[in-house]
């Protein structure tokens, strides 16, 4: 009895730091921000928040077109980047799965973008994409092509953000898929070869089903991460031109931090969180069914 009690205490003793950390760093901020989301708190001029019920949520969902346009941009961005990154990542992983001279060099090379801090990537690309003095437009002109308004056209700028994100995060897809390919059992491939399966058949019938669970996981990770798009917007376009690249997280930042509207900012964050959770759950259940 005494031993069981001691065991019980020790168990809690080891759990306690972790629980304390969770409560202080995750649960408390979440509940605090949930409470804030039902208040009006313009922290620049108000000492304390005032309870306003669901006003913030109603205003955001029904009276704030900017919220919807930011959400729409974010959804399009997430869809495009994740699809492109998955496609390229899959292709690269498949390519480098085969043995060829210099394979290790390319493996390291493809990982470099992911190792760079996102804000550094943003400023690097901002310089390279500058319409007048950027190296990319200079190169285009050198070969006789016209300058592209990478960051100053409302049509092109959203795709520029997609392009940079693809450059930065495709290596993540590649890395995980490459590891998955490496771990696949050789025997099945040998059997397929004996049966005379083509490369495409092997990929479709063997490789893809085997790595599908991994794909689900990394697609989800990337979706959640892509929804949090911030640094590229902050560093490259500042949400311009004409708010064409304003992501939801950037709008939340403006509302909550820049304008110190902490009540509305918190409400927006919660809506954002619920959207990401909802999309993740739907995707997870659908993909699971397909697997």
């Amino acid at each position: 009895m005494k031993y069981a009690y001691r065991k019980h205490v020790i168990k809690w003793f080891f759990l306690l730091p972790c629980l304390a950390y969770l409560i202080v760093m995750a649960i408390f901020p979440l509940t605090w921000s949930l409470r804030l989301s039902f208040t009006k708190w313009l922290a620049t001029i108000m000492e304390n928040p005032e309870w306003t019920g669901i006003t913030n949520f109603r205003d955001i969902l029904f009276k704030d077109p900017r919220f919807w346009s930011a959400l729409w941009f974010t959804v399009r961005f997430v869809f495009l980047t994740v699809v492109i990154q998955l496609g390229i990542g899959l292709g690269l992983a498949h390519l480098l799965h085969n043995n060829f001279r210099g394979r290790n060099f390319f493996r390291v090379l493809f990982l470099i973008p992911m190792a760079c801090p996102p804000i550094a990537v943003a400023f690097l690309w901002k310089m390279m994409l500058h319409p007048d003095i950027g190296i990319i437009n200079t190169a285009l002109q050198t070969i006789g092509l016209a300058k592209v308004k990478w960051t100053t056209s409302v049509v092109v700028a959203p795709f520029t953000i997609v392009m940079v994100d693809v450059w930065e995060w495709t290596p993540f897809m590649f890395l995980v898929l490459f590891a998955a390919f490496q771990a696949l059992p050789v025997e099945i491939y040998d059997a397929a070869a004996v049966d005379g399966a083509s490369n495409f058949q092997v990929f479709r019938k063997i490789t893809f089903p085997l790595v599908a669970p991994i794909i689900v996981t990394i697609v989800l990770i990337r979706i959640i991460d892509a929804f949090k798009l911030f640094e590229l917007i902050f560093g490259i376009t500042s949400a311009g031109p004409a708010n064409a690249t304003e992501a939801l997280s950037f709008y939340v930042y403006l509302t909550g931090i820049k304008w110190m509207n902490l009540g509305k900012g918190s409400a927006m964050s919660w809506i954002f969180l619920l959207i990401v959770l909802g999309i993740s759950l739907i995707l997870l259940s659908r993909l699971r069914k397909k697997i």
């Binding site: 620049t44 001029i45 409302v154 311009g240 708010n243 820049k258 304008w259």
Partner: peptide
């Protein structure tokens, strides 16, 4: 109060005009 917010709205609307989208 809210000066930055008023100006941000102005900045945003102006951006649309300069980009010829509005």
């Amino acid at each position: 109060p809210g000066g930055e917010k008023y100006y941000d709205a102005l900045d945003t609307r102006l951006a649309g005009v300069l980009a010829l989208t509005t």
